[in-house]
């Protein structure tokens, strides 16, 4: 079933997919275990005239066993999940590239700081719905919104973050593979929510150089 996941191209996506698979296998085993017992009991203990059921009100030892087992199990899952979350959303690595993305009904406005790497200067370049980044570089996205809440979603990067009006949120990624990928909006943002779409171009170093030269020829 997990074959349906879109191809992962981000560094931390590997960790998300690992957790996804891990929980998938664990929950499958639990489900088969519970469903197996249920079906077995349903067949074995189906109604027979004249038979009486076992007169039992439970078993405290079993209660303690399955309570502590599930507690340990789920808390272990939380502990295993924590480092990936910390890496992706809390401990951001130093950026190689910074792009400011402003969401609006129903576009992603990508603002590039230009060669001086400073926003708010004359060489800033704004492109609608197209995000150009180099491969194997840490990219910081300064995420903003002009109107309602949007959610910046790049399935292939395993990246999702709501964009809030009045706040700037920094997210990061490092793409491992070149290509063209889609950037839908994942949070309901109005009648144009469906169809709100940008594109991510992950360039090879040479292509990225060419893209820079094309847009900032004088530098």
């Amino acid at each position: 079933m997990l074959d349906w996941l879109p191809e992962n191209i981000s560094t931390y996506g590997v960790k998300i997919d690992f957790l996804f698979y891990l929980i998938y296998y664990i929950t499958n085993v639990i489900f088969l275990f519970v469903a197996g017992f249920m079906i077995f009991f349903m067949i074995k203990y189906r109604f027979k005239e004249g038979r009486k059921s076992e007169y039992s009100h439970g078993n405290n030892k079993l209660e303690i066993i399955w309570t502590s087992a599930t507690t340990i199990g789920v808390l272990a899952l939380a502990v295993i999940s924590a480092p990936a979350w910390k890496e992706i959303k809390i401990d951001l690595p130093e950026p190689d590239i910074i792009v400011q993305v402003t969401a609006e009904q129903f576009n992603w406005r990508m603002l590039y700081p230009g060669p001086d790497n400073v926003f708010g200067t004359i060489d800033d370049l704004e492109i609608e719905n197209v995000l150009n980044v180099p491969v194997d570089k840490v990219v910081h996205i300064r995420l903003r919104s002009d109107d309602v809440i949007h959610s910046f979603f790049i399935p292939n990067l395993r990246l999702k973050q709501d964009a809030l009006p009045g706040r700037e949120i920094i997210v990061w990624f490092e793409a491992m593979k070149t290509g063209r990928y889609e950037i839908p909006c994942a949070e309901l943002c109005g009648f144009g929510h469906s169809g709100m779409l940008g594109h991510l171009y992950v360039h090879s170093p040479e292509d990225y150089e060419a893209w820079i030269n094309e847009n900032w020829p004088e530098s």
Binding site: I16, F20, T27, F31, A78, S81, W85, K89, S151, A186
Partner: peptide, 20 residues
């Protein structure tokens, strides 16, 4: 099934992908 599928989204990193 509904309970087990909830564990996926409880794990914050997995939730990044499946949220919404």
């Amino acid at each position: 099934i509904g309970g087990l599928s909830g564990i996926f989204m409880a794990s914050t990193p997995v939730d990044i992908f499946i949220h919404d």
